[in-house]
Amino acid sequence: MSTDLTLRGPERRRRERRQRAFVALAAAATFLPLAALAVLVGDVLVDGLGRLGWDFLTGFPSRHWDKAGILPALAGSAALMVLTAAFALPLGVGAAVYLEEYAEDTRLNRLIELNIANLAGVPSVIYGLLGLGVFVRALGLGRSLVAGAATLALLVLPIVILSAREALRTVPDSLREAALALGCTRHVTTWRVVLPQALPGVLTGAILAISRAIGETAPLVVVGALTYITFLPDGLDAPFTALPIQIFNWVGRPQKGFATDAAAAILVLLGTLLALNAGAILLRDRMERRRRP
């Protein structure tokens, strides 16, 4: 007494057609943005590759687009990168260790967690105003390299904290228990046993945070990065520019030639980001291999 429930004939064909059409549409929605990214990169390559050269990398800004270079912007971005990492890494990893290894489920700690989640969603331009109000004016650092880096450090701090917590959570409790059972104090356990295990994840997150920082434009504009600078920053209190600021400045000029300069500078920026991310992946692979020989 079995009934054959299989659909046959036109109804089945109709349903199959419907499903195929939907899957094609959904696949298009998935791959179209990737195609757009390819077009973006292709467009920038076509516009800017011809302009890229030693003179461009080592030149100073100029009123003539074919004489302009990005050396001050490169130096500024490099300095910002180092300083931001120096501020954000110890603070971010420290906060993550506190929340994962020390904190109990108290109100204060729940407040800290909620707060970090919300900070991650604050628009970056608002961090610029924070930097302007606190670092540039209240602390009297002026429109300087160190004020810019401190602003970027606060901006990326949630990224460092969240990824470091992720990494700490992957360390098995048995390691902590073993260390404690051997008589290690809590901080010896944390710094000698847990953190080394979590290091690949922590570093990957740190590199992601730094990539975010060197691509930022708006907060630096608000803090007061200059757009036309004909010297290299010579100290923490020096005025500065950065690669995204230089790109923004060139994109905004009416003369067509400067768009070419902007495209070439974008290639340098994207190349740097790609190198950083590739570095992060390599680093993680290498460390994981060393850990599990």
Partner: peptide
Amino acid sequence: ALELLAGVPTVVYGYFALIF
């Protein structure tokens, strides 16, 4: 690959919007 899209600096997207 989609994560890459989110990692492109916004100033680069601005260039793309205006110039392309």
